[in-house]
Computed example of a mutant assay.
Amino acid sequence: MTSDVLRYTAFSGAADGGNPAGVVLDASGLGDDRMLEIAAELGYSETAFLTAPPHGLGTAGRAFTARYFSPKAEVPFCGHATIATAIALAERIGPGDLVFATPAGTVPVSVEATGEGLRATLTSVEPHLEEIGAADLAEALAALDWPAADLDPAFPPKIAYAGARHLVLGAATRERLTDLAYDVPRLEALMRRLDLTTVQLVHRAGSDVFHVRDPFPVGGVYEDPATGAAAAAFGAYARELGLVPDDAVLTLHQGTDMGRPGVLTVELRAGDPRVRVGGAGTRIR
Rank of each mutant, 00 (worst) to 15 (best):
T47P: 09
G133F: 00
A73R: 04
D183H: 13
P71W: 01
A60I: 14
R285N: 14
A52T: 13
L194W: 03
D247R: 12
G58L: 14
D4F: 08
L144I: 09
R213E: 07
F77E: 06
V168D: 04
A270T: 15
Y222S: 11
F77G: 02
A230Q: 06
P261Y: 09
G29E: 13
A48E: 05
G220E: 04
T121E: 15
A66S: 13
P156K: 09
L177W: 05
L201V: 11
A232D: 06
G281C: 13
G115W: 09
G271K: 14
V24G: 04
V209K: 12
R285V: 11
G133V: 04
P95R: 07
V209S: 13
V168E: 03
L194G: 00
S45G: 10
D272Q: 12
P20Q: 14
L264A: 02
G279T: 08
H203L: 12
L194Y: 07
L241P: 04
G133C: 01
G96Q: 01
G96T: 09
A60Q: 15
A134E: 15
M191F: 03
V111W: 00
E41W: 02
Y44E: 14
A280C: 14
G228K: 00
P217T: 03
Q254W: 06
S110K: 05
Y182M: 02
F64I: 06
T251M: 11
V209Y: 09
L177E: 09
L129W: 00
D150Y: 11
P157N: 10
F210P: 00
L177P: 02
V107M: 01
T102P: 02
T51Q: 12
A48R: 03
